[in-house]
């Protein structure tokens, strides 16, 4: 069997997964007495209809891409970093906290923004490191340690918004007092997306790609992921590498949180992570943990998210439909992959 044929069969099965998920969502739409094609068209137009919408897609794409970059590092060492949501949140909290400290000082806004973003990255790394410590020294599976840390991060975030950092007079779900405009990451004129955040995303992707594909460090991470014991015998300090993969992931997640604060919301809000962490986990599965397809797939997911906003406005449907579409896509691709392996007997 030549290589290109294997690859085209593989692609065929993946497309099969896409078709099945579209079918599945269509059936659901028919069940609620809606027109599937109308809904899909609406999502498509909602994402690409005009320049503002396209820029909104990019606003979602940036944190999604960064988060998934980070997750590729933990997946490489075989870790399920479900704590990613908390890591984004803590990144946002650190960014907000540090920025609040420097608001009244005479430091230049550029410097303040830089320090705040760095603080966010450190915050994310600390939170990811905690999940790693719980795993290595506490024997707590990273999934449950991560979930616990997510809950704590949420409690901390809400506690700050309604407590210490509440708006004078009106503590509410709308978040903390917005920062003055000079502390925002600059955007293109009227659009919501910042060129800086796009630059961060692209640099992040390049870094993670080369780290995992082209460095000895990446190779060692892979060895740890393939099997703890054998990597240990080969002389690779296993738990240290596992911790490092967590910290790298935390840096990316923290950066995503920092961008949410400095470039998107300009304040801390209760759902600051926007579920991007869990979406990132799904994207990582869909791209089979390989960085090469990350940018387009993340763009597709971001487009679905933005396009879905039109559903409640026009068709009175809940926007969580796009979540169903994303989830069933990953599920059907995984199942069709399994079917291929089972019946064609190839990996």
């Amino acid at each position: 069997m030549n290589k290109s044929r294997t690859r085209s069969i593989s692609l065929l099965f993946q497309l099969g997964g896409l078709v099945f998920s579209l079918l599945f969502v269509s059936i659901i739409l028919i069940l609620v007495k809606s027109q599937p094609l109308e809904a899909f068209r609406l999502i498509w137009e909602g994402a690409t209809g005009n320049a503002t919408r396209i820029s909104s897609v990019l606003v979602v794409w940036v944190p999604l891409l960064l988060v998934t970059c980070g997750l590729l590092s933990t997946f490489t060492t075989g870790m399920w970093n479900i704590g990613i949501e908390g890591q984004i949140t803590v990144g946002a909290i650190f960014t907000t906290g540090v920025m609040r400290l420097f608001l009244e000082t005479s430091l230049s806004p550029v410097l303040v923004i830089t320090i705040s973003i760095l603080a966010g990255m450190i915050g994310g790394a600390i939170w990811a490191g905690l999940a790693g410590v719980l795993k290595t020294f506490g024997g707590v599976n990273e999934i449950f340690g991560g979930l616990g840390l997510n809950f704590i991060a949420t409690a901390l975030n809400i506690g700050l918004i309604f407590g210490a950092w509440s708006r004078p007079g009106v503590a509410s779900m709308s978040g903390t007092e917005p920062f003055p405009e000079q502390f925002w990451l600059p955007t293109f004129q009227n659009f919501r997306v910042s060129i800086w955040s796009i630059a961060f995303a692209i640099i992040g992707l390049v870094i993670i790609y080369f780290m995992l594909q082209g460095t000895h460090f990446g190779l060692r991470l892979k060895a740890v992921g393939k099997g703890m014991k054998s990597a240990f015998r080969m002389g690779i300090p296993t738990w240290q590498h596992m911790m490092l993969s967590f910290i790298i992931c935390g840096l990316f997640a923290g950066l995503a949180g920092a961008i949410q604060v400095t470039a998107v919301y300009h304040r801390l809000i209760p759902s600051i992570s926007s579920g991007y962490g869990f979406m990132g986990l799904m994207i990582a599965m869909l791209i089979n943990y390989q960085a090469i397809w990350l940018a387009p797939i993340a763009l597709f997911f971001a487009a679905l998210n933005i396009g879905g906003i039109q559903l409640p406005i026009v068709l009175k449907l809940d926007s969580s439909l796009t979540g169903v579409l994303q989830g069933s896509l990953v599920l059907f691709v995984m199942i069709s992959q399994g079917v291929k392996q089972k019946f064609l007997g190839r990996k």
Partner: peptide, 9 residues
């Protein structure tokens, strides 16, 4: 994740 979104939808 999918069942949660399906429930809300």
């Amino acid at each position: 994740i999918t069942c949660r979104d399906l429930a809300y939808f």
